[in-house]
Design a protein around this nucleic acid. Structure first.
Lengths: 354, 354
DNA sequence: CTGTTAGCGCTTTCAG
DNA sequence: CTGAAAGCGCTAACAG
């Protein structure tokens, strides 16, 4: 196979333990021998095998992070939180991106075979029951973020309330025709699954109904992914309708930014002619002066990491579900120093609902 | 130590290979036995050891990516490129973030001990000579991106030309007092090091001199990190000077966006009262209609990944330095459909210089 | 269907 | 200072 420590030892005319010593910079090797070994390593192009190495040493742990898009600011922010916490615990972070559709199946397969990491954090994604069963069999802990899971430990926000809150805010501004933009209506994937977009939509509808308004299905727009492009297109479609909306609630800031772009291109002034509210509060939102419902993205990541870490340590968790607070960040584009005019309201406890 | 396959076998009253079979979903196990084994696994809380597993299987390879900030859009874009290429090759990607200053030393130490990955991609960072030597000893290939390295294979752009180009553009617009903003002047780290910011500055100076202008050192501003906040502060400082600049060249889009924000807060209109040009062309730039010098960030990542992959395969590369083309993206904020007015010029070959 | 027996490549006592 | 030998935990023939 590959060049091993034995080959090096033979070539250098020494024992394997000597080679090991050189590799590990152990002091007890004569300069003479050291040189010979180094030369052998060089000429043979020997590379140590990490796996073998770690097998005979203190075990190194690693957790895998499965995310669908490294291009999505929300997911990246969560990743940051995860990274920080994991790094402190000296646990490696392995990234598994599901960017390309065809890789999804095979990747999840191989993951669940437990080949790669001792724990898994799933970001904005739902596992199939078979997948879950497999992880269970291997006793590999899995934590879900951005999605409340009935069986798996998860970290999430109250998306129904978030949607309700955003809509409520628009209503309080006097809007009556409010559109809702989300990525896709795809049904929850697996048992107990519930997608953020669907939940926010529920809250949106609830707010409308409470205000005594009808729900106009034509104002609910389904896109495909959280990109500015989709937001732009959706805004174009919605505003071209007869009796167009006066306000748009986008399920993510990226979509909202697309809406903003469209408005700009059409010289529609925001918020005078069109009110826009987003979701997430990614960095771009503050630059764009976008009012939004903030999710504590980094915290979401670090909480998930904390969870997986204790699970990996075999701790039996009583509290496996972790709901994080939302914030309503109201931004005003006017004013010299915008930040002074920002308002922030925090929602911690879940709204009584049913 | 931990629960092993032997413990499970004993508890289930079977041989270890049977346990292994159950774990690997091998068909040749009676339902009876399977159940017993599964129960033993469950009650003992057995978890397979990945290292041991991979040692007796086809070797899994992994490459580590060292980056300083997961919060930096440029670095994330490079990471995306890396991820894509690595995923295709079925090589794991391990992230090592240097976010916190104190982790830098220890992390790089342990990395160079070759404990974790079979190859390393360093993003926007320079290794110390001792570090490099150690990697050499272990024959662990290292590829550098965003920085031309004399000894290590690297992927980069012609930053001198980029700076020259950006300044040239501003000059062609009639500006004579052009400021330059970069993160820090820190000297190149290690031999052969050359930092992008310094190179762009060189190009900036060259362009000014060629135009017969004096270089006003007061117009060269040093910040600390590529954040909007720093750009904002820098703009405030620069524009408060007597005889302020009429144009600002920022070494990154993030800095440029901060400048834009400051301008907005002061009701300074861009580009009429202040011209701004950035560097990188992160996604935000197009939203903000920022004229900028585009780096092919994703490509940078995938090229680096390709390099490390062939290096890991033991291929002897003749071409270890890979220079990627730059683009000048000129954006006009006026016009209904901004994209129509965008101009793009591509620079592929390095400018004759020196 | 199931147990026994070799290794995978490396680190680490333990004797020289 | 250096070599021999015993594992690290698991998989994969090989014989039943």
């Amino acid at each position: 196979m590959a060049v091993t420590i034995y080959d090096v030892a033979r070539a250098a005319g020494v024992g394997i333990s000597t080679v090991s010593r050189v590799l590990n910079e152990n002091a007890n090797v004569s300069a003479q021998t050291q040189r010979k070994v180094l030369e052998a390593i060089e000429s043979l192009g020997y590379k140590p095998n990490i796996m073998a190495r770690n097998l005979s040493r203190a075990p190194m742990r690693s957790v895998g992070v499965v995310l669908s898009y490294l291009t999505n600011p929300f997911q990246v922010a969560v990743l940051q939180g995860i990274e920080q916490t994991l790094a402190q615990a000296e646990v490696d972070l392995i990234i598994f991106s599901l960017e390309s559709q065809d890789r999804r199946k095979t990747l999840l397969e191989s993951l669940s075979e437990g080949r790669r990491s001792d724990g898994l954090i799933v970001v904005s994604f739902s596992l199939t029951p078979t997948s879950i069963a497999r992880f269970q069999r291997y006793n590999i802990p899995v934590v879900v973020t951005d999605n409340k899971d009935k069986q798996l430990p998860s970290v999430f926000v109250d998306n129904v309330y978030g949607g309700y809150w955003a809509t409520q805010h628009l209503l309080s501004l006097g809007h009556r025709r409010i559109a809702y933009l989300q990525d896709h209506f795809k049904a929850p994937n697996g048992p107990g699954g519930n997608w953020p977009g669907l939940d926010r939509r529920r809250g949106y509808i609830q707010a409308l109904l409470e205000a005594g308004l009808d729900v106009d299905l034509k104002l609910i727009h389904e896109g495909d992914g959280h990109t500015r492009q989709r937001g732009y297109e959706a805004a174009a479609t919605l505003l071209a309708r007869p009796n167009p909306p006066t306000a748009i609630f986008a399920a993510s800031d990226m979509l909202a930014l697309g809406v903003l772009e469209y408005a700009r291109s059409q010289r529609i002034s925001v918020p005078e002619d069109l009110a826009v509210i987003g979701f997430d509060d990614i960095e771009l939102a503050s630059f764009a002066n976008l009012t939004t419902v903030r999710q504590p993205m980094q915290l979401m990541g670090s909480e998930a990491a904390r969870l997986i870490l204790s699970l990996m340590n075999g701790e039996l968790l009583t509290k496996r579900q972790c709901q994080l607070p939302l914030e309503l960040v109201i931004r005003h584009s006017c004013g010299a120093d915008q930040s002074i005019h920002n308002e922030t309201k925090i929602h911690t406890l879940p709204l009584e609902r049913r």
